[in-house]
Design a protein around this nucleic acid. Structure first.
Lengths: 213, 213
DNA sequence: TTGTGTGAATCCCTTCACAGCG
DNA sequence: CGCTGTGAAGGGATTCACACAA
């Protein structure tokens, strides 16, 4: 049952869902793999292959029913539930996430915020009170956190991550620009802006080189 | 000369550079592919293969000289120059980037900020004055911008991106959770937090399923 | 002896092509 | 007839394994 699903497939599923949400807004009832491919920057065959890993969702000759496929994708992606999220580090990135309305709408609810800065501790974001770093483990357990968003300075990241894992949280979204070494059972995703910028720099540098030559 | 370099290779090069910077801080003089692999969550063979695409940087039996390899990687990644960056959208994400010191240190200098909010226009971030949306094209050209960071709301993103490209900027880092359709000559990188979170959700949902089964 | 650089082998992902259902 | 679902083919990327240089 539990086939191995590649990272890239999952990313595409997420993009398909985004397209389907747009299509719902536009009032479309059905959609073809062709159309989904166009909107997701991939190919029709890829769309069908990705979906076929999880079942048969379409009607031959017709395409996919937008609302049904969206529902199936939400279920596949585990979005048919509320994920309880902790913000570890209440800096700019944390606040950007906190204010992002799409966050809650997609089932991610911020239930705990922790920060090391005494100035911030005790202040409220919405109805969540910021707690001090030393209460991290307690806060994670009390709030039954599923996912921790790690937005602390690079040098502190490894240590804080280990404490989070030790407190029983198995999902981490890491914004610190360092490679975390954690047990295999932990699900870790990195958002590394420096890597993206450097990839951009590489591509642009090559481009101008080629342009000159 | 201009071989095709895969996206994943470039991402790894960026991570190697990060490891090398750490090693420099720790005072290491040489490093093996083995050690770089450990720090970058990959294999020694992969490290050597990646580097071999660009030349021979190591000494057999010894490894790589940390400072030399770091220098070579910076050159390969196009980091041996200053990239002039525009912030389009001065919201939370923009301010997070602006305050991130690693940004400038790695050669990305924010030279222009544009926002549609009249309240923000005219205020200063550092020594950059925020300019109104209608002056976008002018600002990009005057400041000779290489890279635009697009941090505007999803619905506005496509239109603003097209204006940026029309103004001659060929590098875009997009934070809006939409798929932008732009000419092929544009280098576009997406940072999509929703995709990362959903990938996390997927992995966690599967994990608990498997755990129960 | 150690650890790089690299062809060869392997593995995995994407694309092709078409049978088959609506 | 149109479009999905899928085995087979193809193409890339990763890993293996070892010749060779220091």
């Amino acid at each position: 049952m539990s086939r191995k699903i590649s990272e890239s497939t999952v990313r595409r599923l997420s993009l398909y869902l985004r397209s389907l949400e747009t299509l719902e807004g536009e009032g479309s009832v059905t959609v073809s793999s062709e159309e989904l491919a166009r909107r997701g920057a991939t190919t029709a065959a890829q769309v069908r292959k990705d979906l076929s890993l999880f079942g048969s969702f379409g009607k031959r000759g017709l395409g996919y029913t937008v609302s049904e496929l969206a529902g199936s994708l939400r279920e596949i992606l585990g979005l048919d539930r509320i994920w309880r999220v902790a913000l570890v580090g209440a800096g700019r990135i944390g606040s950007a996430l906190f204010e992002y309305e799409g966050f809650l709408r997609r089932g991610f609810r911020i239930v705990t915020i922790v920060d090391a800065d005494p100035e911030k501790v005790g202040t409220r974001w919405g109805d969540v009170v910021i707690r001090p770093d030393r209460e991290l483990e307690e806060a994670l357990r009390e709030s039954e956190v599923d996912i921790a968003v790690l937005a602390v300075p690079g040098p502190a990241a490894q240590e804080v991550a280990e404490r989070i894992v030790a407190a029983g949280v198995l999902g981490l979204l890491n914004f610190a620009p360092v490679h975390l070494r954690l047990p295999d059972e932990v699900v870790l995703k990195d958002v590394n802006l420096v890597v993206e910028l450097e990839a951009l720099s590489f591509a642009l540098a090559r481009r101008s080189e080629a342009g000159e030559g």
